[in-house]
Design a protein around this nucleic acid. Structure first.
Lengths: 217, 217
DNA sequence: CAATTAATTTAGACAAGTCTAAATTAATTA
DNA sequence: TAATTAATTTAGACTTGTCTAAATTAATTG
C-alpha cells in the first residue's frame, strides 16, 4: 500500500494542515527532522500517487484520499495509545514513541477489533479525538486556559504540547484530563494564573496555560 | 537496533536451525522468498554484527547474541498471536500475517506488560511455546500423530504446518489444541488413521497425521 | 522596482536491500 | 581422480529514501 516513510509524511502534512491551508516544504522538513530537499522528492512521489496536491514553490495540501489515509493512521495511533494506557497501564507520557511504531500495522480489521475490545473510546490519553472506522470524529470546542478570564471554569480536555516533559509536569500538578478547574487569579506582571483544581490551588505559568486546553463548562 | 530485514533473516535462520546445524544460503532464500545472492549479502552484514557465524560456502548458525535476538522476536510474535486470538477473537488461522508485522515493534517493556496483561501464557494459539522475558521456554515432548500406534492416545498440542488451509481443516474437524484423541485404526493401504476425538470418529490422511502433533498422555 | 534574502528545487551522490548474470567453489559421479 | 553438476558468491545494476551543494524562484525591502 504505502511505505512507512509515505505514511509519516501524510501524517505530518495532516497535522500541519490544521493550522495552515498550504503546508510548506520547510514546515514538513522541520517536523520530520529531515532536509527540505528530501521533502521535495517525497512530495513529488505523493503527488504522483494523488495523495497530495502539489505545485512547485506553493506548498501542499492533502487530497480527499490522502486525508483519509492520514486520518486512518491517526486512528491507529490513538487507539494504540489508549490501549497502552488503559490496558497495559503505561503513563500518558510514555506511549507516544511506541504508538509511532504501532500506527503502521496495516490490518484494518485488527484496529476495528481493538476499537471494539476497548469499547469504542472517544479520546486518547491526551484528550485527542479518536476517529471512528469511517474516519469521522467530532472536535470538541476547546480553548487554551490562557484565554479564560478570572472566574472562568471548565474541564481539562487536551494539551497542545505532547512532550513527555510537559505531560510529566501536568501529572505532578494533577492537571490531568477530566479535572475541573476554575481561574482564581491572573497575575498581571507575567500572565501566570492561579487555578482552583478540585480542592487544591496551583499556580501555572503563561506557557503552561497556553498549552493546556479546557472545554467550557 | 536491527533493521526489519535483519530481524527476518535472524528469525528464519533460527527456525531452520531447529532441523540442521548449519543453515544454507538456499534454505534461507527459499524461506524468505528471495534470491541466494541477496542472502549472501545479508549474511556478511549479520556476520559483521556478530549475530551469526558465517564462512563462505559453509552455511551459517546463530551466535549466542543472534539467538537471543531471534528468540525475542519469536516471543513477540507468539504473544501478539495469543493476544489476537484470546482478546480480539481472531481465529487461529487468521493471525500469522498480522503477528509478522507486530513482532517488529521494538519496546521490550511493552511486550513484558502485554505478557503480564494476558497472565503469562505458555503457548501460542498453535501450541508453540512462548519464551519468557529472559528467552527461556520449555519444549514439551511431542510426536506427529503418524508415529503413534493403534490404541495410542494423547492431547493435540501443536502443528507442523502453520498454513491457514491446514489450520482451517483442523478447525472444521475439531482437531484443535487441547483435544484428547485416541488412534482407533490405521489403514494399511495409505496409512490414513481413524481417530476417536471426544465422542466423534474422524479419519485423517497420512499427510495430516504427519503435521499434527500430540503430547503423550 | 531593482536588489537582496529566504525558501525551494535540482543535480548528483550515498546506503540499504534487492536483483540478474557471470564466475567460483564444493559435491557428485563416471 | 577428472568431469560434470549444483550451490554459492561476486560484479554490477536498480529502487527507495536520504543527503549536500548549487541553482532557481518567490518574497521582502531599500
Amino acid at each position: 500500500m504505502n511505505t512507512l516513510a509515505e505514511e509519516n509524511y501524510l501524517k505530518s502534512i495532516y497535522h500541519l494542515s490544521l493550522n495552515t491551508i498550504n503546508v510548506s516544504t520547510n514546515q514538513i522538513a522541520a517536523r520530520l527532522n529531515t532536509k527540505a530537499a528530501s521533502v521535495t522528492d517525497m512530495l513529488k512521489k505523493l503527488a504522483d500517487k494523488e495523495l497530495i496536491n502539489y505545485t512547485r514553490y506553493q506548498g501542499v495540501n492533502l487530497t480527499p484520499t490522502g486525508e483519509k489515509v492520514a486520518i486512518h493512521i491517526i486512528r491507529k495511533h490513538r487507539l494504540w495509545e489508549y490501549f497502552l494506557v488503559e490496558k497495559l497501564h503505561f503513563k500518558w507520557d510514555e506511549v507516544h514513541e511506541m504508538a509511532e511504531e504501532m500506527e503502521h500495522i496495516s490490518s484494518k480489521e485488527l484496529i476495528d477489533r481493538l476499537d471494539k475490545f476497548m469499547d469504542y473510546p472517544q479520546h486518547d490519553p491526551h484528550g485527542d479525538p479518536i476517529p471512528d472506522s469511517d474516519g469521522h470524529f467530532k472536535t470538541q470546542d476547546m480553548k487554551p486556559v490562557s484565554e479564560i478570564a478570572v472566574n472562568g471554569a471548565g474541564v481539562i480536555s487536551g494539551v497542545r504540547d505532547h512532550s513527555a516533559a510537559f505531560l510529566q509536569y501536568l501529572e505532578k500538578q494533577q492537571l490531568t484530563i477530566g479535572k475541573k478547574i476554575r481561574i482564581t487569579e491572573i497575575i498581571e506582571y507575567d500572565h501566570s494564573m492561579i487555578l482552583q483544581v478540585e480542592n487544591k490551588r496551583t499556580q501555572i505559568s503563561r506557557e503552561v496555560a497556553d498549552n493546556l486546553l479546557i472545554a467550557h463548562d
